[in-house]
Nucleic acid binder design. Structure first.
Length: 757
DNA sequence: TCTTCATAGTTTTTT
DNA sequence: ACTATGAAGA
């Protein structure tokens, strides 16, 4: 047998890979080849003859699962790798829950409520209970419920817990337990689970059905868990139960990279792993292959300031490398410009694709984007508003959900009047009230509308009936049509995007394209499943798509681009050059942090950010920043003091900031400081000025960001030349000649144009 | 009932 | 800045 690939591992890595006797904990420092150990271990097991379906490998994101599967496929072949149980906790256990749904009182087509659905449901409940929605905020309630579920506290247990209820009274939400109970009841009647249910219901399944548990214990001979430091109690317990029989469990993680406690992740899971599994053997991977010595040492000097951690000494034998550059900017806008300039400088040595800009919050991306666009630096953003969160996509998905599960109330509520068909809020409220009164669902009311004698006029009754018939008609085709064909029919006959055909605005255009993109995705789904001789019904597509929240749009554009993303999203990735922006108090660490424990997590977050860099790391902060509608002054982050000064190179202090401040040479525009000259070739001051005092009589081009005849690139239309620009109601419009693709009018705030130099 | 306009409230990180 | 809700007009 061919085990040559093991030679690519160092001694510790290899030991971890080859150990298959009992439980093992792999403590893997940043860049120490954690993923490699995991993939090779799975490949090793497969080559030993273990059948892929008896290996369960759990990852933190869909992307991680996908990539790991690809790498394993390279080692053992695609045909074998395909059968691995590999995916996120949520994806894997939703699969199992669909199979076992009836045991828990759900159907196999249960809906999955996303965060938005959950909060919308909570709002309804708060309203129904006539509580103050300012005291009972949906987001706060939801995170509380999420917390409870992740700790496996059911509504009953919650209500019975004196401590918890007393605490609720103290923070003035005494009715929380009741809300929680109603929320769960509503989910159940809608035949829906929220994200946290996927873990909680799995636990209930395993608790109440020992035979089922035994079946999966037997099935999964080997269990591997990636990013174990970020598991919560519900996940811990699922693993514990599944692994009980064979204790062939291997978890990999790094306590120094635990950054998801806000989601219930419990760092104790990794710190106390050896207490949970008595046979535990611990492997430590301490050699960092990714980064320069300077970067590793700087990161170490930072993380040393944390009290709670497993002792380890990560080291690098790579070249010493450059120092970490620290830049100070006067404003957030200038920060963006400094970063853009630096990228231009680096671009002689590095490709854009090797550069990443990381930040604490998504909101920070905007100014950076602006700066990059000015310099014509191509970039792509990860996260933010993802494809599946767009209105039109959510609408289409809601149709699918209602078609496969008539009791999905959030879906029904969303689309009963999309497109407008004369069924307004009042009518829906009448239906919903009746449903609550009958303790059934709106759909049940619709099925037998005349019987309930609701005060709804004949016209509306007719419309409701038509809607019901339409959905029923779709539902009838679930078995006979593929997901693609059915979805195409839904899009066509429901008229969701009908109005966008008559409208030539870029918004409608992009709506249509997004829906078409979704159709392409379904098409691909069907094709792949057909190849594997699997069925391709709509509910099956839905089951997959409900958990595909982000970053599935890897449009295979070949052009190298600078990557922008939050640090959380960057976990597990690496880049030659990493910029970390916004190192300011109240931003990083976030102002939401109060306890030392929370500060430690933020410090770990910066540790994660720094250790993404292979060769160059550039940190920056601004002295003033536009946030929440106002400009506020900020102080440099305390974490800057935490990094040993000898690894830092503080550049360009005051070079073009404080001086300008002194000279008063900046615009104070809408409470925002805009340095006049600090940005090379910038048009900000002009642009801003034009926005305050739109002057239609003057030549509009003078105010524009895009001069006439500028060559620009549009993601869809390609390369074109600017013909005309103007401002209308503060919106910048450009007319661009795309040659063969025609001349288009674009709103610059929607169309992301790149300036081509 | 739908559309438009105005106002208010809110912004950490994600499956 | 941006969205989400509410009020007024069509």
């Amino acid at each position: 047998m061919d085990f040559d690939f093991l030679n690519e591992l160092n001694e510790n890595q290899r030991a971890a890979v080859e150990y298959t006797d009992g439980a093992s904990l792999v403590i893997a420092g940043a860049g120490s080849g954690k993923t490699r150990v995991l993939t090779y271990k799975i490949a090793f097991l497969l080559k030993l003859g273990i059948h892929p379906v008896s290996i369960l490998a759990l990852t933190f994101t869909n992307k991680a699962a996908r990539e790991m599967k690809e790498r394993i496929a390279q080692l053992v072949g695609e045909k074998t790798a395909r059968y691995l149980w590999m995916g996120t906790f949520h994806a894997i256990f939703s699969r199992i829950l669909r199979v076992e749904a009836e045991k828990l009182g759900y159907t196999k087509n249960f809906s999955i409520y996303d965060t938005h659905d959950s909060q919308s449901l909570l709002k309804t409940i708060v309203k129904e209970m006539k509580l103050d929605d300012k005291v009972y905020k949906a987001s706060a309630l939801h995170s509380r419920i999420s917390n409870a579920k992740n700790n496996l506290i059911s509504p009953k247990m919650y209500a019975a817990d004196g401590e918890l209820c007393k605490n609720d009274r103290i923070i003035k939400i005494p009715d929380f337990a009741q809300i929680y109970a109603t929320y769960c009841a509503r989910l159940r009647s809608a035949d829906a689970m929220d994200f946290d249910d996927l873990l909680m219901q799995t636990n209930i399944l395993f608790r109440d059905h020992p035979d089922t548990l035994a079946k999966y214990q037997e099935a999964f001979k080997f269990i591997l868990v990636d990013e174990y430091q970020d598991t919560n109690f519900a996940q811990y317990l699922i693993i514990k139960k599944l692994a009980e029989k064979h204790e062939h469990i291997c978890v990999v993680g790094d306590d120094a990279q635990s950054i998801y406690s806000f989601r219930g992740a419990n760092i104790d899971n990794i710190l106390k792993f050896k207490d949970a599994y008595r046979s535990t053997k611990i492997f430590k991977l301490e050699q960092n292959y990714r980064s320069t010595q300077t970067i590793v040492n700087a990161a170490n000097s930072l993380i040393d300031k944390n009290e709670n951690q497993i002792p380890k000494k990560v080291f690098s034998e790579n070249p010493k490398g450059e120092q970490i550059i620290v830049n100070t900017a006067f404003t957030d806008i200038e920060e963006g410009s400094i970063i853009a300039n630096k990228i231009v400088e680096f671009s002689e040595k590095y490709e854009y694709g090797q550069i990443a800009i990381l930040y604490r919050t998504n909101a920070q991306s905007r100014v950076i984007e602006d700066a990059l666009r000015k310099k014509a630096i191509p970039y792509r953003i990860w996260g933010g508003l993802s494809f599946y969160q767009r209105k039109e996509i959510k609408d289409v998905i809601a149709y699918c959900r209602l078609v496969s599960n008539h009791h999905d109330h959030e879906a029904l509520q969303r689309i009963i009047n999309v497109p407008a068909r004369g069924i307004g809020d009042t009518t829906l409220a009448k239906l919903a009230d009746a449903a609550t009164a009958q303790s059934s669902t709106v759909w049940d009311i619709l099925l037998d509308l005349p019987r309930y004698n609701l005060p709804i006029n004949a016209g509306t009754t007719q419309k409701l009936s038509a809607f019901k018939e339409m959905i029923l008609n779709f539902s009838e085709k679930i078995e006979t049509l593929s997901a693609y064909k059915l979805l195409a029919e839904i899009v066509k006959t429901s008229g969701i995007i009908a109005d966008t055909y008559s409208d030539k605005s870029p918004e409608s255009q992009s709506k249509r394209e997004n829906v078409e993109e979704l159709l392409t995705a379904v098409h691909q789904f069907c094709e792949t499943r057909e190849k594997d001789n699997q069925t391709t019904s709509l509910p099956e597509f839905l089951a997959e798509v409900s958990l595909l929240t982000d970053q599935d749009t890897d449009k295979d554009d070949k052009t190298p681009k600078v990557t922008l993303m939050t640090i959380h999203a960057a976990k597990g990735l690496e880049f030659k050059v990493v910029f970390i922006a916004g190192l300011e108090e109240n931003l990083f660490p976030s102002s939401f942090c109060n306890t030392p424990r929370e500060i430690e997590e933020e410090r770990r977050l910066l540790y994660v950010a720094i250790t993404r860099a292979e060769e160059q790391c550039v940190i920056s902060y601004a002295k003033s920043r536009f946030r929440n509608g106002t400009t506020s002054f900020c102080n440099p982050s305390r974490f800057l003091e935490n990094i040993d000064e000898k690894y830092l190179d503080r550049e360009s202090i005051g070079e073009n900031s404080s001086e300008f401040f002194r000279k008063n040479d900046f615009w104070m525009d809408n409470n925002r400081f805009v340095p006049k000259e600090s940005l090379p070739q910038n048009n900000y001051s002009k642009k801003r000025l034009s926005e305050i005092t739109p002057d239609k009589t003057s030549n509009p081009n003078q105010n524009s960001t895009y001069a006439d005849a500028t060559t620009v690139k549009h993601s869809i239309f390609g390369i074109g030349k600017v013909v005309e620009t103007n401002f209308e109601a503060g919106n910048e419009k450009v007319i661009v000649d795309f040659g063969a693709k025609g001349t288009k009018t674009l709103l610059t705030k929607f169309a992301k144009l790149e300036v081509i130099v």
